[in-house]
Nucleic acid binder design. Sequence first.
DNA 1: GTCTATATGAAGATAGAC
DNA 2: GTCTATCTTCATATAGAC
Lengths: 210, 210
Amino acid sequence: MTARGAEKPAGRRAGTAPQQAQPTSRREILDVAARCLRQRGYRATTLRDIAAMVGIKAGSVYYHFASKEEIVAAVMNDGVDNVFDAVTGALAALPAGATPRQRLEAAISAHLNALLAFSDYTSAGLKAFADAPEAVRQSAKPHRRRYEAVWMTLIEELAQAGATPPGVSAETLQLALLGMMNWSPEWYRPGRHSIERLAREFTSLFLRAS
Amino acid sequence: MTARGAEKPAGRRAGTAPQQAQPTSRREILDVAARCLRQRGYRATTLRDIAAMVGIKAGSVYYHFASKEEIVAAVMNDGVDNVFDAVTGALAALPAGATPRQRLEAAISAHLNALLAFSDYTSAGLKAFADAPEAVRQSAKPHRRRYEAVWMTLIEELAQAGATPPGVSAETLQLALLGMMNWSPEWYRPGRHSIERLAREFTSLFLRAS
DNA sequence: GTCTATATGAAGATAGAC
DNA sequence: GTCTATCTTCATATAGAC
């Protein structure tokens, strides 16, 4: 899995020079598309916009991709794989004897960071999914299922350790937790909220007093 | 505040008769627009679609409304006022000595019912808000603030009664709770989930063992 | 690889007849 | 109140020159 993220394309254009000479890469187009999709959603993101931001004309995009749907599907799927890597990586990096609280907080923190700070791809995928054509949504399904399984496994592990609140099913726990996090782009403001603090507080909600 | 909801327009067209004779009302157009906006979002909802579903031609819509934005703003604002009425009504209907759990569960239940079952307006407003033009979003602000204040008040009341989990600020509590609920249209399926059960389980997450 | 030019099809909105 | 007809704009996508 290669690098995917919110980083700007390599500094090909020196300073403010508006013209370019180097050829455009697929990744460069995807980076710009992810940023657009995140900000504006599926319908409001146009190939003209993307092309202009990359420094080429709209027609030239079709040298790299067969359709808008192909671009959106690539962004969405990279986005899900992105959080998947972030969350599984964070869990794997914990010491063997980590507490339920440490594991849940690490996973929540990784998810929030991908969504709110690191990856235009991840937030673009969330925002564009509902409006994307059926074919795009279908192609995203396996990626999403794989990611959801990570959370289901984690929650069941916590439940078996007796760490989750009583009277709430694992399924509801998962839906509530992901919903709480996935809605956060609607209200999160970088200067106003601290991701680490949010992760800590969100974690408290899903563990019985510990 | 007049009736607003997901009810189909009055049975003007007998049975399956495709044609109509009676004049179209503003409310009828808004009902159809709300349904469209809920299903397809702002950009994918066209005046042509709305007109066709109401039984008139696209141009005729402009007899009733000055623009698409005016329609969307009306739907969104009615939608917020809708949940506001539902939640404040549910709280007011409780007996004086209701417990924190009863009050929170009543509010959550009212919100979920508006969002998932009763009101196309409410869910349309949530779905279309992010993509709507700035002018529409601005007009929604006072309605949204008034509604959010209801939750802030309720949560602070619960916090003072010592019913909320320790170590989580009232602001985070509110953002987490509304996010959890507002994301539910993404996964809720009428046959598969029970709104009353969800309300009960969601409530448990936000109250310390009681 | 990128360009220009263009085909094709909507969309929102308006004018004026009925 | 609703229609038809149309203006204008902007979208995805294609063809072929450079």
